[in-house]
Design a protein around this nucleic acid. Structure first.
Length: 162
DNA sequence: CGATTGATTGTTACA
DNA sequence: TGTAACAATCAATCG
């Protein structure tokens, strides 16, 4: 096997090794797309410690809910981890009916996520990869728009009331 | 009533 | 090259 070898490099980058063999693993489509440019390669540099070293501590951030639509920038698609969370959450609640909040699930998820093997995670990585492709495109258009002209970005100037 | 936090990792854009 | 913020989620909680 020695698949783990790829994992240490970058899962998303090697999302095309074992796929055709098992088109459908657990119902998830393992459709693979061509690799994007680089991506989060740089992130892997120091993620081994915690999550970047000198991160500042946000007192209160995290948005609550956008007023209307995406202000202007394309929203970030969920990562592979989130997709895994979606599935894991269901199973977790079954085995742990006592647990309700996502916090606990996320905790268990994080631990399990690391115990997962490359092939197991690849399934989710691939899904996220496709989403990123869309996001990348959306971003390109967004950039284009900004360059084209940042004039009157009517956020709520729409014909709300008419 | 409602905005907010809390917890997870991944990913991206910007300086 | 690094970092900072954000993606889903939902119950509990504070004001």
């Amino acid at each position: 096997m020695a698949k783990a070898k790829n994992l240490q490099k970058s899962p998303s980058a090697s999302a095309h090794d074992s796929s055709e063999a098992s088109s459908e693993v657990t119902g998830l489509r393992v459709k693979r797309r061509k690799e994007m440019k680089s991506a989060a390669k740089a992130s892997r540099f120091n993620t081994d410690n915690k999550r970047t070293k000198t991160i500042k501590k946000p007192k209160s951030k995290q948005k609550k809910k956008n007023d209307r639509f995406d202000v202007n920038k394309p929203k970030k698609p969920p990562t592979a981890f989130f997709y895994f969370l979606d599935d894991f959450r269901k199973e977790f609640q079954e085995q742990n009916p006592d647990v309700k909040t996502m916090r606990d699930v996320g905790k268990a998820c994080g631990e399990k996520w690391k115990t997962m093997t490359y092939e197991e995670k690849v399934q989710y990585y691939d899904i996220a990869t496709e989403k990123r492709a869309e996001f990348d495109k959306a971003m390109t258009e967004y950039k284009k728009r900004t360059e084209s002209g940042i004039h009157q970005e009517s956020e709520e100037d729409w014909e709300i009331d008419g």
